[in-house]
């Protein structure tokens, strides 16, 4: 029985889009086309134009933008790992490896950022894959646990052995030319990663990633080496994160134990969960929400960590699809109230 008087219900209709399967879309008009494409075009344009504002936005916002992109790279990396069923609590592992490799290449081999950043991206990702390879059999809790422990292990090892500069870190590295180059570089990397990952996951190769997440046994039965698939996913996911590490190393002209700090794990994790895992746009959106918030709260010290832990908690439990999917769904629908028709048999 519905409540008498207001016998209406909310009806949601997809906007002019006919969906036959997950893949086939039919757009009805130019207006619908614009409706779908405009937000994407605007977002990309805004990102690409932002650096041109230069000093007009001030160094504070430039820093916020760079940090947002760095966290977005780490969150994108997290999302690709999640797509193959690996839950990382330690994105700082990839970040730190990329950072230290860049630091070593620049400091000991004198390569300079032009060489050290791309090399550190590849080598850092390869190193991370090598470290994680024997642990890829682990699932669920256990993989999360290992990724939580590994960055701390590296941190303690560096601290204890004094290798790679020990607690002092490696400083005096070659800087990047200027702020505009920095912003463009990291923004381009984030955009490229987001689009590449979205493309990748839509192919049959990406399909296998999802299949591994859903049911490893059936993927084995289909003739895939699951461990190998996972290793490939780890390598691909590690690329943007290692890049972020290498980039930040050259930006600060310094790399130290802080590269393995927990903040580089919790912040991307929260960004991915708040924005919405699985879409590769959610994590970027999440970074845009979290990083400015986090920067604004810098004077409150650890309180901001408390805040985003709580956000992580609330979104995990309350809105697991994340902000991006939620908004995108609403954006793609009309909503109106319609009268409820009484069913003939009175039910």
């Amino acid at each position: 029985m519905s409540s008498p008087g207001r016998a209406t219900r909310r009806e949601r209709i997809d906007r002019g889009i006919k969906v036959r399967s997950d893949e086939i879309f039919v757009l009805a008009s130019a207006r619908d086309l614009a409706w779908v494409l405009l937000p994407r075009a605007l977002a990309v344009a805004a990102l690409l134009l932002f650096p041109l504002l230069g000093a007009r936005v001030g160094p504070y916002w430039q820093t916020v933008m760079i940090n947002t992109m760095v966290i977005a790279l780490l969150a994108l990396s997290w999302d690709l790992l999640a797509s193959v069923g690996l839950i990382s609590l330690g994105q700082s592992l990839f970040f730190g490896l990329g950072g230290y490799v860049a630091g070593a290449l620049d400091s000991f081999a004198g390569l300079g950022p032009l060489w050290s950043i791309p090399l550190a991206t590849l080598l850092g990702a390869a190193l991370a894959t090598l470290v994680l390879y024997p642990l890829l059999r682990l699932r669920g809790v256990y993989f999360g646990l290992i990724t939580f422990a590994l960055p701390l292990l590296f941190m303690r090892l560096i601290e204890t052995t004094g290798a790679l500069g020990g607690t002092e870190g490696v400083s005096g590295l070659t800087p990047l030319p200027n702020r505009t180059v920095e912003i463009y570089l990291v923004t381009a990397a984030a955009l490229l990663t987001a689009f590449a990952f979205r493309r990748l996951i839509a192919t049959d190769y990406g399909l296998v990633f999802h299949a591994v997440r859903d049911n490893e046994r059936s993927v084995m039965a289909a003739g895939f080496d699951v461990q190998r698939v996972k290793a490939q996913a780890v390598f691909l996911a590690a690329l943007p994160a290692a890049f972020a590490g290498a980039f930040v190393t050259h930006r600060y002209q310094f790399v130290g134990m802080t590269a393995f700090a927990m903040e580089y794990s919790t912040l991307p994790l929260t960004a991915a969960v708040v924005g919405g895992p699985g879409s590769f746009l959610g994590p970027v959106v999440g970074s845009f929400i979290l990083v400015p918030l986090s920067e604004a709260m810098r004077e409150f010290g650890s309180l901001r960590v408390v805040l985003y832990s709580l956000m992580l908690l609330v979104f995990t439990v309350g809105l697991p699809e994340g902000i991006f999917r939620f908004v995108a769904r609403k954006y793609g629908q009309f909503e109106r109230r319609v009268a409820i028709e009484e069913a003939p048999d009175g039910r």
Binding site: A82, I87, L89, G140, V141, G144, F148, M262, T266, L269, V273, F300, G301, S302, L303, V305, V306, S309, L310, L312, L313, T316, V317, P320
Partner: peptide
């Protein structure tokens, strides 16, 4: 509410733990 979803169990307890620890740090 997230029982059985291992990922969410881990993340939510992790979040509670970090929140407590960092609260005391603050």
């Amino acid at each position: 509410s997230v029982r059985g979803i291992v990922l969410s169990e881990v993340i939510s307890t992790f979040a509670v733990g970090v929140a407590i620890v960092e609260f005391f740090r603050w």
